[in-house]
Design a binder for these strands. Structure first.
Length: 440
RNA sequence: GUGGUCGUAGCUCAGCUGGUAGAGCACUCGGUUGUGGUCCGAGAGGUCGCGGGUUCAAAACCCGUCGAUCACCCCA
């Protein structure tokens, strides 16, 4: 077949879908900026050693190679970034002297991972990140703040209801430690699989891999079963009878997040002790967000606190951040037709053409509308008016402007209503000026 | 990377045990000598993903390949 086929994992949108994506990105941008986050744009590539820095993450990194490079490659092993946290950490170190701390930034850029694509997971995807990073110490209140920023950003988007599940690494690991389990990192990774493999399999893994006794395993699972929308979880955890200083710290930090969130974004955050996150660099609060009806997508927004986002040996830069999977949210919703744009072009008004000779007059008319911010285009040809209206209709353009004996008339092609207007005063209804997102 | 399923018109799909392609929607033109959406009529559009094999004959069977999709893994 000569027609090119799509590339697995590299979704491309149709114009009307792209309008949805653009509107979402604009919305996120406004929300982040309202909270004082500065924008950053980092290069697409990072040195391989930077990308592979974080533990032995088996991320499938796309490696860059120049066609003309020597076989042995004098190229300094570059790879495309697979998230925005790693580039940000590098950027912070590189520009530490020029940044003011605490520093808050947002970043909305594509990322690449070579994994096998699936619904909601792509090889190229858009991610919207916020992080707050400080020098030396990062106050715990930022762990509350980033969750609230996300709540604010996601709210107001026409998406299915979303809910953020929050836990604290100190809480879980302190609990395991208090129980007498030594490899608390591994225990956490096992608990992370709870949703996938179930209670019994997790118990068996705990017993087999971290030498937990059946009683210890059961206690871990009891902890993981606790969840609450308010601080009542603190009592539930205490009731399990484990005591440990790290556990206490975790409990009070998580309580602070849940307490503040309950006040400022009721119903958005739920404390959930089975949230662990597979990644090893989180050290405090961890977040995962699910979209109602799309639980199968997994987390659409996650992140956490890391005491060592970056370090140059002398200074450490702790941070806390969250990342919204824009593609993960949008592509499945678009494909399912759950979300769409009101039209497929920005155009609000088509200036009809009675005769090709009228084109320059029509251009002038269009320009008068554009000057006042009304996206306008002139009809492609002086075809029959029926066709010109159809041209608009097919694209979802709401208005057609005619010039006739009555003067200039605007027709709303949805209602069919046509009225004589003053081109320099006419305003479309606010909802029609630009395309908007509609949810099913 | 491992395994399953699928690949026919722009889209959704039909095509029985092999006999060389069809529907609906969309599209173009006309009915409607310039204000669409309904209706009616006509028309255009496919080397049946690609390559090879079996056969008198393959969209159909076999092999390979590419692509899609799902599961595992991992995660946004």
């Amino acid at each position: 077949m000569s027609r090119p086929q799509p590339l697995s994992g590299f979704p491309e949108l149709l114009p009307r879908q792209r309008i949805v994506e653009q509107q979402v990105v604009d919305h996120l941008r406004r929300a982040f900026e309202l909270h004082g986050f500065a924008n950053l744009h980092t290069r697409a590539v990072e040195p391989m050693d930077q990308l592979l820095r974080k533990g032995e993450t088996s991320k499938e990194v796309y490696v860059l190679r120049r066609l003309q490079a020597d076989a042995e490659g004098g190229d300094a092993g570059l790879g495309l970034h697979f998230d925005l946290t790693v580039p940000f950490a590098r950027y912070v170190l590189e520009n530490a002297g020029k940044l003011n701390f605490p520093f808050r930034r947002y970043q909305i850029q594509p990322c690449w991972r070579g994994e096998r694509p699936q619904e909601g997971r792509y090889r190229e995807f858009l991610q919207a990140d916020i992080d707050i990073v400080d020098l030396g110490e990062l106050p715990a209140h930022y762990e509350v703040e980033v969750a609230l920023v996300i709540a604010d950003a996601l709210r107001g988007l026409p998406l299915p209801p979303v809910r953020m599940h929050v836990n604290n690494r100190k809480l879980s690991q302190g609990f395991y430690q208090g129980l007498g389990i030594h490899d608390t990192d591994e225990a956490l990774r096992i608990i992370d699989k709870l949703d996938k493999i179930g209670h019994d399999a997790v118990a068996k893994l705990l017993i087999d891999t971290v030498d937990a006794t059946p009683e210890q395993a059961e206690a871990c699972l009891k902890l993981a079963s606790i969840s609450a929308e308010d601080t009542s979880f603190v009592e539930e955890v205490r009731a399990l009878g484990v005591s440990d200083p790290l556990l206490d710290e975790g409990l009070s930090e998580l309580a602070a997040v849940v307490d503040a969130a309950a006040k400022e974004a009721p119903g958005f955050v739920v404390a959930d002790m089975k949230i662990a996150r597979g990644l090893d660099y989180y050290t405090g609060t961890v977040y995962e967000t699910v979209m109602e009806g799309y639980e199968g997508l997994g987390s659409i927004c996650s992140g956490g606190r890391y005491d060592k986002l970056a370090s140059d040996g002398k200074h450490t830069y702790p941070g806390v951040g969250l990342s919204i999977g824009v593609s993960r949210i949008l592509v499945p919703l678009l494909q399912a037709g759950k979300i769409d744009a009101t039209r497929e072009v920005p155009t609000c008004v088509i200036v009809a053409l009675a005769d090709e000779e009228d084109r320059s007059a029509a251009n002038a008319l269009a320009q008068r509308l554009r000057r006042r911010g009304v996206p306008t285009q002139v009809s492609p040809s002086a075809a029959k008016f029926g066709k010109q209206i159809k041209f608009a209709d097919k694209r979802g353009i709401p208005f057609v402007l005619f010039t006739n004996e009555e003067g200039t008339q605007i027709k709303d092609i949805r209602s069919g209503e046509q009225t004589t207007v003053d081109v320099d005063a006419w305003e479309p209804p606010a909802a029609d000026l630009h395309p908007t997102i509609v949810a099913e």
